[in-house]
C-alpha cells in the first residue's frame, strides 16, 4: 500500500505520539494527553493501541497482536492485518519471537524480556472515572494525590461483599505516586506488570497515553487485612495441563458441561507441542 506512509500515520503524527510516549515513560503512570488521530477503525476497538504501535514500530520489528490472550480472535486478526498491509512488518504468534506485542485485556504468560515492548489497548484510562465523572476534577485529584476515594471504593466493596469486588481493571499505584488503570486485564495479570519489557498504554478516544518503564514498581491497591489476590479459576488447563495460567471457561454441551482452557493460545499450543514431542 504505497499511498500510505509506513504504519499508516504520517511522520509528524508519529513524532507527536513518540513525544507523548517519552513523557509518559518519564512520569510513570501519568496520563499524557495526546492529539489522537481518527483511525480507519472504530474508537473503542484499539485506536489508541494502534497509534502507539504505529509510532513505535520499525521495519525490523516482529509484531504479535492478541485479544483476550488469543492471536486468532477477529479483532486481533484485523489489527495484525492492518499492520501487515500498512507497515509490511513480520508478524508472529510466538510471544518469544515478537519484539512488539499489542494486546487487549491480557499479559502473555511467558515472562517478557528487556528487548520487547508491550502495547495495551485502553478503553477508559482514568481509574477514578467511575467514582468521579468529571475529567477536570479527576486531573486535579491526580495532581494533588488525593486518592482517598479509591480506598473508599475498596472499603465499600468489603463492607458489602466481604471481599474486594474488582476482578479486572484492578487499580494500581505506580512508584508510590500515580494511581493507574492497568486496562481491563484480569487481576491475575497485575503482578506481571513489574516486568523487564517497556509497557505502553494507548487510549485513542480518550486521547491519553501512559507508560511504565522496565522494572517499575506497580502495586495493586488493597488493605493489609484484605490483601490483593491474583486469582484465577481453580482448575488446570484441560488442553495443556498448565496450572499457573489464566483460563477461559468454555461451554461444551447443552448439559452445562464445561472445560477450562488457557486464554493465552500461544502458551497453550507451545505446551501441547512440547508434550507431543516428548511423547514421540
Amino acid at each position: 500500500m504505497s499511498e500510505y506512509n509506513f504504519a499508516y500515520l504520517d511522520e509528524q503524527t508519529k513524532r507527536m505520539i513518540r513525544r507523548s510516549i517519552l513523557k509518559g515513560l518519564a512520569i510513570p503512570g501519568y496520563q499524557v494527553p495526546f492529539a489522537s488521530r481518527e483511525m480507519p477503525m472504530p474508537y473503542g476497538w484499539g485506536t489508541g493501541g494502534v497509534q502507539v504501535s504505529a509510532a513505535t514500530l520499525t521495519p525490523d520489528d516482529t509484531l504479535k497482536v492478541i485479544d483476550q490472550g488469543a492471536d486468532d480472535t477477529t479483532n486481533a486478526i484485523s489489527i495484525r492485518k492492518f499492520f501487515q498491509k500498512t507497515a509490511g512488518v513480520n508478524v508472529t504468534e510466538k510471544t518469544a519471537e515478537a519484539s512488539l506485542i499489542q494486546t487487549r485485556h491480557r499479559i502473555p504468560e511467558v515472562t517478557l524480556r528487556e528487548d520487547q515492548i508491550l502495547v495495551y489497548q485502553v478503553p477508559i484510562p482514568e481509574p477514578l472515572r467511575f467514582l468521579e465523572p468529571s475529567e477536570v476534577e479527576t486531573r486535579k485529584m491526580h495532581a494533588l494525590e488525593e486518592y482517598g476515594l479509591m480506598h473508599v471504593k475498596l472499603y465499600e466493596d468489603i463492607s458489602k461483599h466481604g471481599a474486594i469486588a474488582t476482578s479486572y481493571a484492578y487499580p494500581v499505584r505506580v512508584e508510590g505516586r500515580y494511581v493507574m488503570d492497568p486496562s481491563p486485564i484480569p487481576k491475575f495479570d497485575n503482578p506481571k506488570m513489574e516486568m523487564a519489557a517497556v509497557q505502553l498504554f494507548g487510549a485513542g478516544r480518550e486521547q491519553r497515553i501512559y507508560a511504565l518503564p522496565p522494572y517499575t514498581e506497580v502495586i495493586s491497591l488493597d488493605f493489609e487485612d484484605y490483601p490483593f489476590e491474583a486469582s484465577k479459576a481453580d482448575h488446570a488447563c484441560d488442553l495443556c495441563g498448565a496450572e499457573n495460567s489464566y483460563l477461559d471457561e468454555v461451554i461444551i454441551d447443552d448439559q452445562g458441561g464445561r472445560i477450562f482452557v488457557c486464554s493465552d493460545t500461544d502458551f497453550c499450543t507451545s505446551r501441547q507441542d512440547q508434550t507431543k514431542e516428548e511423547a514421540a
Binding site: 473503542g44 485506536t47 485479544d67 483476550q68 478503553p123 476482578s167 479486572y168 484480569p186 471457561e249 486464554s263
Partner: peptide
C-alpha cells in the same frame, strides 16, 4: 464516531474480563 465506536465495542470479545467476574461472583 467516538460514541458509536465505544458503544459498539462491547460486542467485541470480553471473555477474559467476563471470566474474572464469573469467578468473583461464584466466590462471593
Amino acid at each position: 464516531i467516538q460514541a458509536t465506536g465505544f458503544l459498539e465495542h462491547i460486542k467485541l470479545p470480553h471473555y477474559v474480563d467476563f471470566q474474572s467476574e464469573l469467578e468473583l461472583i461464584r466466590k462471593l
